[in-house]
Amino acid sequence: MKRLRKSPSVPFLIICASPFLIILTVALSILYGTKGIDASTIWQAIVHFDSTNVDHNIIMQSRLPRVLAALLVGAFLAISGAIMQGMTRNYLASPSIMGVTDGSAFVITICMIFFPAMSNIHMIMFSMIGSALGAGIVFGFGSIMRNGLSPVRLAIIGTVIGTFLSSLSSVLATHFQISQDLTFWYNAKIHKVDPDILLLALPIGLTGLVLALIISKSITILSLGDDISISLGQRTKWVKAISIIIVICLTGTAVALVGKIGFVGLIIPHITRFIVGIDYRFVIPCSAIIGGIFLALSDVASRFINFPFETPVGVVTALIGVPFFLYLIRTRGGERRA
């Protein structure tokens, strides 16, 4: 029997240290980029913003929104991944593998074709609808599968449906000649994040986070298996429904913000469980913290890999994520428990 959690001091330590870590990450992200900015300028920009100063503008218009977006998106994806893994007891579950992000991108493609002048709030809404669509198709297929649903099967179905949706997107894009916009959009446009969408995303994300924390105890029980969950008197269907809604909101918002970014939702929950144990009351908040910081740092790295050009942050997360994914397969490929 696995210990339900490691010493609770570890998660508390992470949660207490998180403000400092986040400030550090923000500072790093603002300091380093194509144009170096020194620390005193940042301070100046915050206390005495000068709209004529180029550096101040870079900070407030580009770097600050960017790092905030990275933190939020990383946190959203990591929470989604943690919830999905706990709920489905599938160690491979994550938004990008389960077709959720591709669904979201597909619907956004359609919207870009038919309603080119879409408002931000609509964009987020459609993105959520797309997430729901992707998740719906994948789990729908999963549930009509008469020979049961192993983690691997679900992962394969998810990947394949993701391919299908993104192929459809690119056919549509070719036909309506918006390929270029779309390629741009898909490949993680974190450096072009729109501050307005960011402001809209904040309340949605916070709601999702609070909801996730509220049901986190139920997810721990769910992660022991449906049978146990039911026999412990938990209303399994409700918990699952709320979990799915949270995932759809968070992933949809994340895609609307920055496009498709893979692997964060997959690897962060694993790392988190490794550090804090398997109690989702700790896994969810810690995943959020670690995921946010991970993506923000990947974003910093993406500015330097091919200096002075930006590399899509998705390339960075994939380059880190793929070896980790392989390691997971290697060490626990046969295991079925989440």
């Binding site: 994939a318 994520g321 793929v322 392989l326 397969i329």
Partner: peptide, 12 residues
Amino acid sequence: QRLILSGIAIST
């Protein structure tokens, strides 16, 4: 099982 998964990972 690992074959397909590592395949997916490697192609990504």
